[in-house]
Nucleic acid binder design. Structure first.
Length: 772
RNA sequence: GGGCGAUUAGCUCAGCUGGGUCGAGUGCCUGCUCGACACGCAGGAGGUCACUGGUUCGAUUCCAGUAUCGCCCACCA
């Protein structure tokens, strides 16, 4: 595998593999030449480095890095794992020069005292005010070091005095810079004490710690040892305690790049979805620090900087130089370090399109439309792409940044390889199927919320696949051998055909809008609900009477139903395809026409203007309401299915009457009733079960079958509900503040509700009183 | 220490810019071998929308505070 071309993208793993090999005892002298990088990308990377260097945006400087002495590599902040450890807090006496007095400092890393170059106190701390400017003798090393004053010191913590070791602590490094203190590095890159550590030279850092403590004790300078829990950085690869280590690195001056990148988001050239990530982006960009781009790894893009051994000049160029550009000497060597992987990854939006060449692809696709990514990478990658894109292309690299959810474990923790709390998608897919798993993720993908996966829900959506399969089976079964899809004439459509086509249009519209707004859970739910609870629960059932009928007069209507079923199936499969690619492609393969290709490349459904039927949509809502009421009576009254009941609708509304009479067959079938009558002057019997909706009273004569107590209970429940609602409305309308301040239409709406509730309540109460 | 987010049915979660009886899936109860599907059908129970204030005619929705949980960042001599 090592022989193979190493992609830039794999550079992340470089450090991991390096650490792994080291632990296995492999030689670290792996020939870099064995790894090759994509030439085009290398060219782009060098070009960017050189341009930034010439603009004065790349410089060399020192900083304290987190160093793993075992992997011999620097660790970035995310590669460092902090753990709370029980450590010691050693209190040590430093003699004050020329006196017999001491000051006391406390440290958790006594071995670093070998590199101390000062002791610091807070300038406002009276206890030590008289010491400032004096010197103390650094024990063991017998070096004289100054006592300085610096705000960084916390008076409350420890003894209020801090030893300053600029080469081994980032804060001390800053203090050292402020006070021009020498930076004394006392360790080598393996964590052993070097020649600056006097007698301790050659000792491992922890061995040295032991010896230092012993020697201090012998000298009577160790005052006490306290237990002290503190957080210690560990290498995420090998779990070795990291060592803050002074080193020379290349940096990118970031402010000039960050400013236009902030502006691009402020001006809306780039949009974060969900929007709240913008804030986090700003937060980071405003506080951004210069970017250290040197990495002590083996592979990746080597820094194109060459040091001249003769004149010390640094030659930076796109193509490897053979001599120093200043003195012409051939004694030059390239910087050993490689570039941070994000340096090259940040070029992705344009380097992949052929930049720096002006390729047609670059012209066509830059800027890109959308970047989909996790929030944990906004800073590392997204921000860098924006900065470098603007700098080198003069325009943003993408318009929308969709930040997707993270799947977390049951405790809500982020999954990670090292923690081992990973939910393996392969196992989930084996268990429930890939489509069910994918669909569930979509259903969970509400914006701005992470996902705690629930297997029960995957299981639930797996049932949906079964439903899809059976829907298809039913439709294919009923289409017959000789079926050919035809253009549907709106004039041939029956009311329920119109209703379902209208609903299909709604679904196409809503789902498409949801996708465009990155509301994936809404989109997935739209097709789920349409398919199962409208198409299957209602439309399919409503076609059976027509299709199973032997009557010649229904032949045409039956043929229309088949056309509609087929159309809905096809369009629904397309709508579902992004969420369930496999089953939809499979079914598509069996139903598609000869000239049609795969579903994945088919045209996304668009609303069909000839199929908008608001009238039938309203009618069907009423139809469903009537059926709910009848079924409710049957269910609540425990009327056995073999007991065919009758139903009487009492209404004087002509439209409703017409609708009911037209749909008698369907009411009979779906509500399992024998006779259906509409009678505006119906006088209900005492033993009729009753339900009401606006403008219609529904009666089921039950004769000996009625359980009076049960019916009383049922009506009582309905009365309680309506009474509560009516009270709420009455209270609102009785409130002068509401009637004077609320908008007219809201008041009208409430008044309408009041009338309706009063009417329904009166009718039910009448029925109830008849029972008593 | 700083910042962000969450708290809605037994469980896992929706609920967009304030105004319907707050909805899914699962679980629970009742009844169904009715010619696609029991991974199903029909009906039902179950919510003081964490708590306390505020804004408003009106708050699950907006604001502030409290509590609990989670995430990110920083610090820990």
């Amino acid at each position: 595998a090592f022989e193979k071309k190493v992609w830039d993208w794999k550079a992340h793993s470089g450090g991991q593999i390096q650490g792994q090999l080291k632990r296995l005892g492999c030689s670290l002298d792996w020939p870099r030449e064995r790894f090759t990088l994509d030439e085009g990308l290398s060219k782009a990377v060098h070009r960017v480095f050189v341009d930034l260097y010439k603009d004065g945006l790349i410089y060399q400087g020192y900083r304290i890095i987190n160093w793993c002495p075992r992997c011999e590599t620097a660790l970035s902040d995310i590669e460092t794992e902090y753990k709370d450890l029980d450590g010691n807090f050693w209190h040590i006496k430093y003699p004050i020069t020329g006196t017999n007095d001491f000051i006391m400092i406390a440290t958790t890393r006594p071995e670093t005292m070998l590199g101390d170059s000062a002791v610091a106190a807070n300038p406002d701390d009276e206890r030590y005010a008289n010491l400032i400017g004096k010197t103390v003798i650094l024990p063991l090393m017998n070096r004289e070091i100054p006592v300085i004053a610096d705000d960084y010191v916390d008076r409350e913590f420890g003894t209020g005095l801090v030893k300053i070791t600029p080469a081994h602590d980032p804060n001390d490094f800053e203090v050292g810079k402020r006070h021009n203190l020498p930076e004394i590095n006392v360790m080598d890159k393996n964590g052993n004490i070097n020649e600056n550590g006097g007698n301790y030279k050659g000792l491992d850092r922890f061995e040295a710690r032991k010896r230092v403590v012993e020697d201090l004790e012998k000298a009577g300078l160790l005052v006490k040892i306290e237990k002290h829990e503190h957080s210690v950085g560990h290498c995420y690869r090998c779990q070795t305690i990291i060592e803050p280590y002074l080193s020379k690195q290349w940096f990118v001056k970031i402010k000039p790049l960050a400013e236009p990148a902030i502006k691009a988001v402020e001006e809306g050239k780039i949009r974060f979805v969900p929007q709240n990530w913008e804030k986090i982006y700003y937060e980071w960009m405003y506080n951004i620090k210069d970017w250290c781009i040197s990495r002590q790894l083996w592979w990746g893009h080597r820094i194109p900087a060459f040091y001249c051994d003769d004149c010390s000049h640094i030659t930076v160029s796109i193509d490897d130089p053979s001599s120093c550009e200043k003195c012409g000497s051939k004694n030059i060597r390239q910087d050993e370090d490689v570039l941070d992987t994000w340096f090259s990854s940040g070029l992705w939006p344009f380097s992949t399109l052929g930049w720096p060449d002006a390729t047609p692809a670059l012209k066509k696709y830059y800027p890109t439309s959308v970047l989909v990514t996790g929030f944990d990478i906004i800073f590392f990658w997204v921000a860098r792409m924006i900065m470098l894109g603007i700098k080198f292309m003069g325009d943003v690299p993408f318009r929308d940044v969709y930040i997707h959810a993270l799947v977390r474990d049951e405790q809500g923790h982020k999954m990670s390889k090292s923690k081992g709390n990973v939910i393996d998608p392969i196992i989930m897919m084996d268990k429930f199927g890939t489509d069910a798993f994918r669909f569930t993720l979509a259903m969970f993908a509400a914006q701005g919320r992470d996902i705690i996966l629930s297997e029960k829900r995957i299981e639930g959506y797996r049932s949906f696949i079964n439903k899809i399969w059976n829907t298809t089976k039913f439709i294919l079964m009923n289409l017959g051998e000789e079926f050919t899809p035809e253009k549907i004439e709106p004039a041939d459509l029956e009311p329920f055909d119109r209703w379902i086509l209208h609903r299909l249009n709604d679904t196409i519209r809503g789902l498409t809008e949801s996708l465009e707004a990155y509301r994936f859970n809404d989109a997935a739910y739209a097709i789920y609900d349409f398919w199962w609870h409208e198409f299957c629960d209602w439309y399919l059932e409503l076609t059976k009477q027509r299709m199973y009928s032997k009557q010649d007069s229904l032949k045409k209507s039956s043929a229309t139903a088949r056309q509609v079923l087929f159309l809905i199936l096809k369009k629904s499969l397309q709508l579902l395809h992004p969420f369930m690619p496999f089953i939809t492609e499979e079914i598509w393969g069996t139903i598609k026409g000869k000239d049609e290709g795969l579903i994945i490349v088919s045209q996304w459904p668009a609303p069909m203007p000839e199929f908008n039927f608001p009238v039938e949509f309203e009618e069907t809502a009423l139809f469903k309401e009537l059926l709910y009421k009848i079924r409710n009576i049957r269910g609540e009254m425990n009327i056995p299915p073999d007991r065919k009941a009758n139903v009487v609708f009492k209404t004087s509304n002509k439209k409703i009457t017409g609708m009911i009479q037209r749909e008698i067959v369907h009411i009979q079938a779906l509500a399992k009733v024998e006779t259906v009558t509409v009678d505006a002057g119906y006088k209900p019997d005492r033993t009729d079960a009753c339900a009401v909706i606006p403008e219609v009273e529904i009666y089921m004569p039950l004769k000996g079958l009625i359980d009076i107590e049960k019916e009383k209970e049922r009506l009582g429940k309905e009365i309680a509900r309506l009474t509560a609602e009516l009270e709420k409305v009455d209270r609102k309308l009785g409130d002068e503040k509401f009637t004077s301040k609320a908008p007219e239409q809201i008041i009208e709406k409430e008044k309408g509700k009041r009338e309706e509730y009063r009417d329904l309540l009166a009718k039910i109460e009448a029925s109830l009183s008849k029972l008593s």
